[in-house]
Amino acid sequence: MTTFKLIINGKTLKGEITIEAVDAAEAEKIFKQYANDNGIDGEWTYDDATKTDTVTE
């Protein structure tokens, strides 16, 4: 398992969460579901060097 981080730069929700996932694709799926569940819809970027997804509304 690898640690992945999501940075949220939303209009109403800001912060970050960290998860353990098998790979980047699994982490992205989990993060996008989390964002959807919390009403966050924005531009996504991924930095492989830091294993960090960022969503900005």
Rank of each mutant, 00 (worst) to 15 (best):
Asp53Gln: 15
Thr52Val: 09
Asn38Val: 12
Asn36Lys: 15
Ala25Trp: 09
Asp47Val: 09
Lys5Thr: 13
Ala24Lys: 14
Thr56Val: 09
Ala27Val: 07
Thr12Val: 12
Thr52Pro: 03
Ile7Glu: 02
Asp23His: 03
Ile30Ala: 04
Thr12Glu: 09
Gln33Trp: 05
Glu43His: 11
Ala24Cys: 14
Tyr46Gln: 01
Asn38Cys: 15
Thr45Trp: 11
Ala24Asp: 01
Thr56Met: 05
Thr3Ser: 07
Thr54Lys: 05
Gly10Val: 11
Leu6Trp: 11
Lys32Tyr: 06
Leu13Lys: 05
Ala24Asn: 06
Gly15Gln: 14
Gly39Met: 04
Ile30Leu: 09
Ala27Gly: 00
Ala49Leu: 14
Ile30His: 05
Thr56Arg: 05
Asp37Gln: 10
Leu13Tyr: 14
Ile7Arg: 02
Thr56Asp: 06
Lys29Ala: 11
Gly10Thr: 14
Asn36Gly: 04
Glu28Gln: 14
Tyr34Ser: 00
Ala27His: 00
Thr52Met: 03
Ala35Ser: 02
Gly39Ala: 07
Ala24Trp: 15
Ile8Ser: 00
Thr2Gln: 13
Leu6Pro: 02
Ala35Lys: 02
Lys32Asn: 06
Gly15Lys: 13
Ile7Pro: 00
Asn38Tyr: 12
Glu57His: 06
Phe31Tyr: 01
Asn9Phe: 12
Val55Met: 03
Lys32Ser: 05
Thr52Phe: 06
Val55Lys: 04
Thr50Ala: 06
Lys51Val: 03
Thr2Tyr: 14
Lys11Tyr: 10
Gly42Tyr: 08
Glu28Asn: 13
Lys29Val: 08
Phe4Ile: 04
Ile19Leu: 08
Ile40Pro: 01
Asp48Ser: 10
Phe4Arg: 00
Ala27Asp: 00
Asn9Gln: 09
Asp47Met: 10
Thr3Arg: 08
Gly10Cys: 15
Thr18Tyr: 14
Val22Ile: 12
Val55Cys: 09
Lys11Thr: 12
Ala24Glu: 06
Thr50Gln: 05
Glu57Thr: 09
Asn9Gly: 02
Ala25Cys: 15
Thr50Asp: 04
Glu16Asp: 03
Ala35Pro: 01
Lys51Asn: 11
Leu6Asp: 03
Phe4His: 04
Asp23Pro: 00
Leu6Met: 06
Thr12Gln: 10
Ile7Leu: 04
Asp47Lys: 05
Asn9Leu: 11
Gly10Glu: 01
Ala27Arg: 00
Glu16Trp: 14
Asp23Trp: 10
Gly42Cys: 14
Glu28Trp: 13
Asp37Cys: 13
Leu13Cys: 15
Ile19Gln: 00
Lys51Glu: 03
Met1Ser: 08
Thr52His: 05
Gly39Glu: 04
Ile40Lys: 01
Glu57Tyr: 07
Asp37His: 04
Lys51Pro: 03
Ile30Cys: 13
Leu13Met: 13
Asp23Val: 06
Asp37Thr: 06
Glu16Leu: 07
Asp23Ala: 06
Gly39Leu: 05
Glu20Ala: 06
Thr12Leu: 10
Glu43Thr: 12
Ala21Met: 05
Gly39Lys: 05
Leu13Thr: 08
Ile40Leu: 07
Ala24Leu: 13
Lys5Glu: 03
Glu16Lys: 04
Leu6Val: 08
Lys51Thr: 04
Lys14Gln: 12
Gly10Leu: 14
Ile40Trp: 06
Thr2Pro: 08
Ala49Met: 10
Glu26Tyr: 05
Lys32Ala: 08
Ala27Tyr: 05
Ala24Met: 10
Leu6Gly: 01
Lys11Asp: 09
Asp48Val: 13
Lys51Gly: 08
Thr45Arg: 08
Lys11Arg: 08
Lys5Phe: 12
Thr50Pro: 04
Thr45Lys: 06
Asp23Ile: 03
Val22Gln: 11
Ala25Thr: 09
Thr2Met: 11
Thr54Cys: 13
Ile19Glu: 00
Asp37Leu: 09
Asp47Ile: 12
Asn36Leu: 15
Trp44Pro: 01
Asp41Ser: 12
Phe4Gly: 03
Thr45Val: 09
Gly39Ser: 04
Thr50Leu: 10
Glu57Asn: 06
Ile7Tyr: 06
Asp48Lys: 08
Leu13Gln: 09
Gln33Leu: 06
Ala24Gln: 11
Thr50Met: 09
Glu26Arg: 04
Tyr46Ile: 11
Gly10Arg: 01
Phe4Ser: 01
Lys32Cys: 13
Glu57Val: 13
Asn36Asp: 12
Asp37Phe: 08
Ile30Pro: 01
Lys14Val: 10
Gln33Asp: 06
Lys29Tyr: 05
Glu43Tyr: 11
Thr18Met: 10
Lys5Asn: 03
Ile19Arg: 01
Gly10Gln: 05
Thr12Ser: 08
Asp47Asn: 08
Asp37Asn: 06
Glu16Thr: 12
Gly42Asn: 03
Trp44Gly: 01
Asp37Arg: 04
Glu26Pro: 00
Ile17Pro: 00
Asn38Phe: 12
Ile19Met: 02
Ala21Arg: 02
Gly42Met: 05
Asp41Lys: 12
Val55Gly: 04
Ala27Lys: 03
Thr45Glu: 10
Lys11Pro: 10
